[in-house]
Design a protein around this nucleic acid. Structure first.
Lengths: 216, 216
DNA sequence: TCCAGGACCTACTGATGAGTAGGCTACGGG
DNA sequence: CCCGTAGCCTACTCATCAGTAGGTCCTGGA
């Protein structure tokens, strides 16, 4: 701890590579989520991250690589959050319920992560979307598996359950976006609305029925 | 018909403004749907349209204006298609059913229109998305009104029906995208899958029940 | 104490692409 | 037959931004 540490700030500090990489990724997620892939400039990311542009290229590579790294990190966190949240040994409705709640909890806590995942990555047709679509595909498969286990031995065709899983995931995404504009609604409430829609169905809701979780 | 019409082709022909505007908009929709807003270049649009770049600026204005014009035209067609397709005097389930079918018919017939509307316009945070979000909002309001009329006098809160409308629209969008990758599935089938999901609910489907239209 | 290597920067290049200046040509009305 | 105007183009300008060259400075080990 030399004496002139704070009066001549030698920039800020020299930091190990991992720390810088985290800072850069954090900044990139923010900037990408605000402006989208194309409108986000490497200059702005470097500025937000508090490093110079060549550092980004040295550590994370080109713009596409950087974006892919963001997607990978955020998508992993999301998948992990859901996997940790869902009760795999519970009956189907509780599995869906806990999965939905974990999903919305993540979105509520990591709004920027969600924006960069849903809004930005989905719309870019490039090599990222493969990365991202893979993750989305895993989520869909998860739901699909749930449907198949539930509806098995019934004559429901394979494509039907897959399509319904796609629809369900899309409903969740859309509702998550809506929720960002209505932050006063509690997470549990949003989740229960979607749960009622897809589990009970509008037909039942019209008749006044409603699904409620069996505990808590 | 002068003699040198085909040997010295005087370009192609001089065409009235409306025709050129249509050609330009058609080309713009194609290019925007393929590359997205930012990656689409005015040069490529002009090339596809078969006119020079200054014509686009003379007729349709700047890039943002052009994109907004595309969105406006395509969104109007979609809204119109649904409005024409839905049976406003039918019971709720048939209203939903006819609306869904009209929606999927449009998507099947106008794939590029759908892509530019859903994929591209949604992801750009600019002034277009206002235009587009307005249209999407109209669709949501339509569904919301249907839910409200159905579930009226029940204690369902306003925000719940709105949120469910949002989820339903999102499910439709997601499923429409999926359908683009599975064109062998008939339109009626896709529509019925979504109808079953949101009207019957997974709970009923698990029990083997299914909703079928009451006619043809 | 010296030096190797890694953290970090300024200041550039080169390409791409939006938008425009300034024209030329055909057609229809006088 | 002439000319105003509307259709149409070539050939630029200029800004932005991804990506890089080539360096400085610090730290930790020999």
């Amino acid at each position: 701890m030399s004496v002139d540490e704070q009066r001549r700030p030698t920039r800020v500090k020299r930091l190990p590579r991992e720390v810088r990489e985290r800072q850069i990724l954090d900044a990139a997620v923010r900037v990408f989520s605000q402006h989208g892939y194309h409108s986000a400039s490497m200059d702005e990311i470097s500025e937000v991250a508090g490093v110079s542009k060549p550092m980004i290229y040295a550590y994370l590579g080109h713009k596409e690589d950087l974006f892919a790294a963001c997607i990978r990190r955020e998508a992993s966190l999301l998948v992990e959050a859901i996997a940790n949240g869902v009760q795999a040994d519970a009956p189907p409705d509780m599995q869906l319920w806990t999965g939905l709640r974990a999903f919305f909890r993540f979105v509520g806590a990591q709004k920027e992560s969600w924006r960069v995942l849903h809004r930005q990555a989905t719309s870019q047709g490039g090599p990222f979307s493969e990365e991202l679509m893979g993750m989305r595909g895993r989520a869909i498969s998860l739901v699909d598996a749930l449907l198949v286990r539930s509806a098995t031995s019934r004559g429901v065709p394979t494509k039907a359950t897959e399509a319904m899983a796609v629809a369900l995931v899309g409903a969740g995404e859309s509702l998550a976006d809506w929720w960002l504009d209505h932050p006063d609604v509690p997470e549990k409430t949003v989740a229960s609305w979607l749960m009622n829609l897809v589990w009970m169905g509008l037909g039942d809701l019209v008749d006044g029925a409603a699904w409620v979780p069996t505990e808590g």
